[in-house]
Nucleic acid binder design. Sequence first.
DNA 1: ACAAAAGTGTTGAGAGTACACCCATGC
DNA 2: GCATGGGTGTACTCTCAACACTTTTGT
Lengths: 247, 247
Amino acid sequence: MTKRRFDGLAPGEGASPDRYDPVRFERQNVTVDLVIFTVRDRTLKLLLIERGEPPYQGSWALPGGFVRKDESLEDSARRELLEETGVRDIYLEQLYTFGDPGRDPRTRVITVAYFAIIASDRQVLHASADATDARWFSVTGLPRLAFDHERIVDYAIERLRNKLEYTTVGFQLLPEQFTLTELQNVYEIILGKQLDKRNFRKKILSLAIIQETGETKMDGVHRPARLYRFSDAKFMLLKEKGILFPF
Amino acid sequence: MTKRRFDGLAPGEGASPDRYDPVRFERQNVTVDLVIFTVRDRTLKLLLIERGEPPYQGSWALPGGFVRKDESLEDSARRELLEETGVRDIYLEQLYTFGDPGRDPRTRVITVAYFAIIASDRQVLHASADATDARWFSVTGLPRLAFDHERIVDYAIERLRNKLEYTTVGFQLLPEQFTLTELQNVYEIILGKQLDKRNFRKKILSLAIIQETGETKMDGVHRPARLYRFSDAKFMLLKEKGILFPF
DNA sequence: ACAAAAGTGTTGAGAGTACACCCATGC
DNA sequence: GCATGGGTGTACTCTCAACACTTTTGT
């Protein structure tokens, strides 16, 4: 039976930080990786960057980077997000932590994955601010990804789909004002199936989470659509009645 | 605009592991912490250990320990579980990663929290195999906990409650053979409310996930109860119809 | 007047909820 | 025979699911 130990520190660390056993308790490389979603051209897209160096040189990978010494994990993710996209104050959520030895061929790297959502009107992606290329890819047409990033992406998409059903994450993909058809499109795109217009509207309106703005959206040639916005918070859990499970 | 970087490595690390910038990219202390649940005496309990050293000396804390160099996060959690409880092959799931600087007063420690479930007939806790004391506490009567462990526990309980509704995690708390009343008790204990016996049985049986063993459990004095076991896997997601949301 | 998207109600089916009594056993 | 937990069915309500036509606008 091994001796029980829980310090939150390597042995001896509390007293003198340099005396930890470098073999068994070597500190770890910790990164954050981001799966950044948006909707454009009626498809769900996510942001990838092209790797400039080996390994996986020339492959596409999730944006991310090292967790710095004195920032929280979420701060770290928000910093990376800002660096990659120039966007702040958007929905961000921790996804899962991937730490298999061997997921990076060079050395052991533990990565805390986050997923983020950028509203369709805020994709101000400064096309390639430096050497590496950054692009939006449709989730249905992703290239081969570096490391275990495919697994991370799969997990993120699954989580997004699930959360659509009992939260208002879906709304994060839309501008502040939106039409019910636009909202329905977001749901259809992410769930990958058609929804009934009447049932969808009935359900959303029954939840009393949006309100009319009084304005309409003239797309030019057709009947103008009413614009709505959220009643309360930007993100909420829908207790009690789920949201769109049945669809 | 900061230069974009995603190596999965500290700068220079690939070529020569010692040249990374120790200030911005210092490697991190990474631990796993475990919230280990069981049900006994008609209450939901979890395992805590008493800390022998500062900080929080004498306080209770979640079992856990350092992630070793060449083990995966889950392996790390399973190893700790085995060391603390002597139990293997039980349900274990990654919960969330907590990494606020300052959550450990000594130095920065990132912890990947897991939650585990031990069936009520397997609590072979070798009472204190070493100096530190380990005990089961009812979740309604927890002592003050070390570090941010209260937050971790709260999160674990919330997750357990949620998962009860759309998975068969609840079944993990029971022995291989169990009565419907025992199953219902598990649900009532975790959800913290009474359930209707007829409705509960109707629902569970309609899911066709358990089968009669043909045996009965004689508790001595009353009518013997039929024993059941799972039909298929030990753990499953209940797609389509949720499971017990309505209760 | 016509093309195209916006907007609107009803009905049937199925699941959830509430509710009360008889059964089998040990003492 | 009695105390105790095991075991069973029905009726009401409400949400989900399917389904088609009218309205408003620009051209």
